[in-house]
């Protein structure tokens, strides 16, 4: 009996659990100004859903500069060192073989290959870094369960404020979104 009761309570809490609130905006400009208000209200765990990168929205959201370039740089340095080391080791150490009277190793002839590997490794680091920082690939996200999310990939703009944000308060957050011009404010299932 008591077990059954506990289960019921758990289910009740789970049903009450929300991922957060989602509000709809019709134009990029509405979204931009609303984002500024949410930022100024001090929220941390929130996001904008846009069909394309809206120019200046990063600033309106108070996002810091992406760290992807640092990952790219690390990749590029690794690529260059890999190229130089590979050519030096294969040509001078592992199997020294004089061809055309040229030196066994020289950074001059090793440069084109090292240059290409710099670019190759940078590309992998950039894309890998972007995906890791973004937490992709991701199988499921509560936002994707929202019934109108398809329009967020098309021509509509959303702001999602997550329930895990310390400032999140069902009524106050909803009021904020309404004040900022958000339409159709809905709770997202977790």
């Amino acid at each position: 009996m008591s077990t059954a009761a506990t289960t019921t309570t758990n289910l009740a809490t789970m049903a009450a659990q929300t991922h957060g609130l989602i509000a709809t905006f019709e134009t990029p400009r509405d979204l931009y100004h609303a984002a500024e208000q949410v930022r100024d209200a001090g929220y941390r765990n929130w996001d904008c859903i846009t069909p394309f990168p809206v120019h200046g929205l990063d600033k309106a959201m108070g996002l810091r500069r992406s760290i992807v370039p640092r990952i790219s740089l690390a990749g590029g340095i690794t690529g260059f060192i890999t190229g130089m080391t590979m050519i030096w080791w294969t040509g001078q150490v592992d199997y020294p073989l004089t061809v055309g009277g040229k030196p066994l190793f020289s950074p001059m002839f090793a440069f084109p290959v090292s240059y290409e590997l710099t670019i190759l490794f940078t590309a992998f680091a950039t894309i890998g870094g972007m995906l890791i920082v973004n937490g992709l690939p991701k199988h499921y996200d509560p936002v994707l369960k929202y019934e109108h999310i398809r329009r967020g990939m098309d021509d509509t703009f959303f702001i999602v404020i997550e329930a895990r944000d310390p400032r999140f308060h069902a009524a106050n957050t909803k009021a904020l979104l309404e004040k900022a011009g958000g339409k159709a404010i809905t709770e997202l299932e977790a």
Partner: peptide, 19 residues
Amino acid sequence: LGWRGSNRHWSNYEMAYII
């Protein structure tokens, strides 16, 4: 890959694209 148009993602995405 589970892309959802998040602007936090766009921010890194655009940076990656320009690189």
